[in-house]
């Protein structure tokens, strides 16, 4: 398909979005991510029954936490796509990148003056 989307996106593959925990999302922000999107299967199409629905709830909770601690809940989002929707994926990544550009760098990155670190550095 040769679809183009911004190169400043780091893709982390998981077997199911149900594997994505609140702590994983918060850690991404702790190490300096400006924004995070969780892209799961279409609702009703989860091979593990409700993985994407669990992810939706968790993303919603992370939004609330980010709002309350001053980062802004709009920096995290959840999308549902099938494996045949590559075009829409590229579109979402472009949209999210534009939104983050408008919001500016994460206050965490501004406060610490560091570039995005590997998750292992913080966890250690």
């Amino acid at each position: 398909m040769r679809l183009q989307y911004p190169p400043n996106v780091r893709i982390i593959e998981v077997p199911c979005t149900g594997k994505v925990d609140i702590n994983h999302l918060l850690m991404a922000f702790e190490v300096g991510a400006d924004g995070v999107i969780v892209v799961g299967c279409l609702e009703g199409d989860c091979h593990y029954m409700a993985g994407n629905l669990h992810a939706k709830k968790r993303v919603s909770r992370v939004k609330g936490i980010l709002d309350r601690v001053g980062l802004g809940g709009e920096r995290v989002g959840m999308y549902n796509l099938s494996s045949g929707m590559g075009g829409r994926f590229a579109e979402i990544v472009r949209e999210m990148t534009e939104k983050i550009m408008e919001l500016g760098p994460s206050p965490i990155r501004k406060a610490t003056g560091t570039a995005l670190k590997a998750a292992g550095e913080v966890a250690a």
Partner: peptide, 9 residues
């Protein structure tokens, strides 16, 4: 994690 984000920002 939430409190670290709060303090750091």
């Amino acid at each position: 994690s939430a409190l670290r984000l709060y303090f750091t920002q």
